[in-house]
């Protein structure tokens, strides 16, 4: 009898609802700025819900009011953002609306309009670009971690002139987008691609294995970042392949760390490992300044 009595509050705790009245968005778009403009694509009826919220914390309430249904945000796999990504991303991760491995895409024009018109890269396109080494993986927790630690600058997937690329952001503004070479260099250093092939001279070079090491040292009062190692590739022209790969890695280092002060490659942690005291104690903005003033070297060898 006592056990049966205990079942009563247990049943209350289950918060039983009719799941037919519950909506599960899979794509969420947000235009930040003066308040939040939101749009969510629901999986059940392929519909679009649009809403306005004064703060990121009010997102589920705003969507619920706009749709008239309970919102279950556990299935959101991609967040499209136009504007400052920091505030919304932190709240979305903290409130578990977005999984840590969810994709985040920055759009130059209104993300809500893009979601309505379908003018945004699909999760499948992003995944394919990551697997073929054209873009590095940038899940939500990595993006937020870069914004909060490192140098306070992160890179978000974006689309520019029909080409998938990365756009650099800090908590307030955009720094610009990266070239195709820089994206490929970052993907090569990320080492999470399944195949990595590129046009090289007259033919195609396919990277089979890369063993790259990053080191950060202090020389004459400046940081010196070195990428070294060897790459095994299938190619008819190893010298041309080496030149291409060298250009990719150099572009990755220059366009992110030297030009913008962005630390996407865990350079601060490499500096801590190299016992550089400034890396332990400095603020993210100071670390960005040190990276802008640093020297960058790439020393790789390609074996056929």
């Amino acid at each position: 009898m006592k056990k049966l009595l205990l079942l009563l509050p247990a049943l209350l705790l289950t918060a039983c609802t009719d799941i037919r009245t519950r909506l599960s968005p899979d794509l969420l778009a947000a235009d930040t700025g003066n308040g939040l403009r939101l749009a969510a694509h629901t999986t059940q009826d392929d519909a679009l819900i649009t809403a306005y919220a004064a703060a990121p914390e009010l997102l589920p309430d705003a969507l619920q009011t706009a749709s008239g249904s309970e919102i279950a945000p556990g299935h959101i796999s991609m967040l499209l953002i136009c504007g400052n990504p920091c505030a919304l991303l932190e709240t979305a991760l903290q409130k578990q609306w977005l999984p840590p491995s969810g994709a985040v895409v920055s759009l130059p024009e209104s993300a809500c309009d893009a979601l309505g018109s379908g003018a945004f890269p699909s999760p499948g396109q992003l995944s394919a670009a990551e697997e073929t080494g054209q873009l590095p993986r940038r899940p939500a927790d990595t993006v937020l971690g870069d914004l909060k630690s490192g140098s306070g600058i992160t890179a978000l997937h974006t689309e520019e002139n029909g080409r998938l690329t990365l756009s650099l952001w800090d908590a307030e503004r955009q720094y610009g987008t990266l070239s195709a070479d820089a994206c490929r260099g970052l993907a090569l250093l990320d080492s999470r691609w399944k195949s990595f092939a590129f046009a090289c001279g007259e033919g195609v070079c396919t990277v089979r294995r890369s063993r790259l090491h990053i080191s950060v040292a202090e020389r004459d009062g400046r940081l010196c970042v070195t990428v070294s190692g060897s790459i095994t590739a299938e190619t008819d022209d190893p010298a041309a392949a080496e030149q291409c790969l060298h250009a990719m890695l150099t572009a990755a280092l220059h366009e992110t760390a030297r030009d913008a002060g962005a630390d996407l490659l865990f350079l601060r942690e490499y500096a801590v490992r190299g016992r550089i005291a400034e890396a332990v104690h400095c603020e993210p903005a100071e670390w960005a300044g040190l990276l802008r003033a640093a020297e960058y070297r790439v020393s790789i060898s390609v074996h056929a």
């Binding site: 903290q94 840590p100 927790d141 971690g145 870069d146 630690s149 865990f266 942690e269």
Partner: peptide, 21 residues
């Protein structure tokens, strides 16, 4: 697993099952 996610509020353990499906 969750490198640099240092300033996130909340329990870090419950990020792991979501990060490592």
């Amino acid at each position: 697993q969750n490198g640099r996610l240092f300033c996130r509020k909340g329990n870090p353990f419950f990020l792991l099952p979501a990060r490592t499906p």
